[in-house]
Design a protein around this nucleic acid. Sequence first.
RNA 1: CGGAGCGUAGCGCAGUCUGGUAGCGCAUCAGUCUGGGGGACUGAGGGUCGUGGGUUCAAAUCCCGCCGCUCCGACCA
Length: 436
Amino acid sequence: MRLSRSLVPTIKEIPSEAQIASHRLMLRAGLVRQTSAGIYAWLPLGLRVLRNIERIVRQEQDAAGAQEMLMPTVQPAELWRQSGRYEDYGREMLRITDRHDREMLYGPTNEEMITDIMRQSVKSYRELPQILYHIQWKFRDEVRPRFGVMRGREFLMKDAYSFDLDRAGAVVSYRRMMLAYMRTFQRLGLRAIPMVADTGPIGGDLSHEFIVLAPTGESQVFYDAAFDDIDYLGGEFEHGSAENLDRFFSLMTTNYAATDEKHDAATWDRVEPARRREGRGIEVGHIFYFGTKYSKSMGLSVTGADGKPVIPEMGSYGVGVSRLVGAVIEAGHDEAGIIWPDSIAPYRAAILNLKPGDAACDRMCETAYVGLAGDAILDDRPERAGVKFAEADLIGLPWQIIVGPRGAANGAVELKRRATGERVEMPLSKAIRACT
RNA sequence: CGGAGCGUAGCGCAGUCUGGUAGCGCAUCAGUCUGGGGGACUGAGGGUCGUGGGUUCAAAUCCCGCCGCUCCGACCA
């Protein structure tokens, strides 16, 4: 993108309404704008990050054997009456009446809807197990939205639903999703830890929340440092083998990890002192096994091998995609701005033309822009160098190719790594290769 | 939902107590200088003072209602 023709409304001052780093930086770097309390418009740069996170989430869901679909945001109240949650959910649910006086709602989650779809479509035990997911906007009318996209009312969530014939199968699905989540978070450059959780209004008896460590997190967490050394991407764990998943799951659950609500001082004291880690955490995902809660209340059953009805065992698995944008920034920033992980940065590099109008600078910047196949922000604005440096650091792309008249005369640019601040002078072609 | 605040130029704010010409900084636009870490100077444009009513000769300012937003607490991907 050419910055001179793009909507990237950066802000120099700190917005007064933003209390935490990620919120301030998202506003300052021009990623989002608030349109109502807890409701945000995603500007071009922010949307690219959101899409990149979605892509990783999608790849890992697919790898775990889940199928993508898309359910609507607006749902009929009738479905929620069947499960009994229409009244239970309370004021957090945004209720809508259409022109025919039909009661509708803006979905806060989709258990009822997916169960309805499955009961219409799945008739035989041969058709299970299945896991379905979608990435869709949700609305929960939070009493007090805050912290920008971390705690908005409208948010983008990936929610998956598993259907198995028995508890043993459901447990395999649950573990698969847990592995998918750990892989997803690692790819996002986040250290996330699964912690035993309350099941809340969704119900059930097996539930974990995934907590990302960040100093501005909302809850206090305690965990065993053993989690820090686990590599989920290296091939040690796989979705295909129940035995392997079993080993994975016991690794996740035997090491101590708890939020302050579930913290057990006695068990904590048995963790080797050198391995005790304590800090603040942000919940970025939550998974539940809830048995037949919805299948039973809503009449989902399939015919079993013996000709008798079987009520499927279900689970649901949510990850806050839009919240992750905030979480990634909480985990990666400094005084100057955001430091994006390579995996989700809106663009790979910023090309800073320190002297637009200078033939050599212009030519080298164009070469760099083409060389990066447009996966870069070309700062071609007639601004001073200082402004460009400051905004490039604020936006936080992984690389900066700095093209100034000094080096341009003999074909050299500076390549700066945002994360470390390290700057090295080198030929343009080498800099381009380093970024790709 | 309990408690507390705030709505004045794109952003951040002063002015409100004590009614009488709507202001400052940043940003924007034009020009000059400058030119490797948010530069300087000169000039210009930009306002239904959240909204509806009331009091008054006169309301950003006083009174009442409404709306919006923020913060603290209890709750959540």
